[in-house]
């Protein structure tokens, strides 16, 4: 059975747990958690990651900076990135997509919507 590794970068433990709950419904899913952008990049360098899910508003390094760094790195630039954020404004969405995000989901999330986005990006 194919296994997938997800990196969840989110400062809220509540959201991390909720996203983990949703992702665990994918058979063979492994979830790695990080609490900010810098922590996320560390975990990215030490793990094989198939997809990144990140918040925007986080301490130390925000999600947009993280997207920018991931997309400018040859080793990681092909990894799909899903933004999960409270920012519902169209400009915020356009900015994230312009930086290289593959999908943009606003909070509060629906696990079905999150799962269908992830499955679509991974061709599951």
């Amino acid at each position: 059975m194919a296994s997938y590794s997800f990196l969840v970068i989110e400062d809220s433990p509540t959201m991390r747990q909720l996203i983990r709950f949703a992702l665990n419904r994918i058979p063979g899913a492994a979830v790695i958690e990080a609490s900010d952008g810098v922590d996320g990049l560390k975990k990215l360098s030490s793990n094989k990651v198939d997809l990144i899910l990140t918040d925007i508003n986080m301490p130390i390094m925000d999600g947009l900076k993280l997207v920018n760094l991931v997309r400018s790195n040859d080793s990681y630039k092909a990894i799909p990135i899903v933004i999960i954020t409270t920012e519902g404004a169209q400009e915020a969405r356009e900015r994230a997509m312009a930086l290289g995000a593959d999908a943009y989901i606003t909070k509060p999330i629906q696990s079905t919507s999150l799962l269908s986005t992830v499955k679509e990006l991974l061709d599951l």
Binding site: P13, Q17, L18, F21, A22, S111, T112
Partner: peptide, 20 residues
């Protein structure tokens, strides 16, 4: 069922975190 599942997950996570 999916909606109920989503709701239960939200309630479980909220309850779990509050008493963590």
């Amino acid at each position: 069922v999916e909606e109920q599942n989503n709701n239960l997950a939200n309630l479980y996570v909220a309850s779990y975190q509050l008493h963590s």
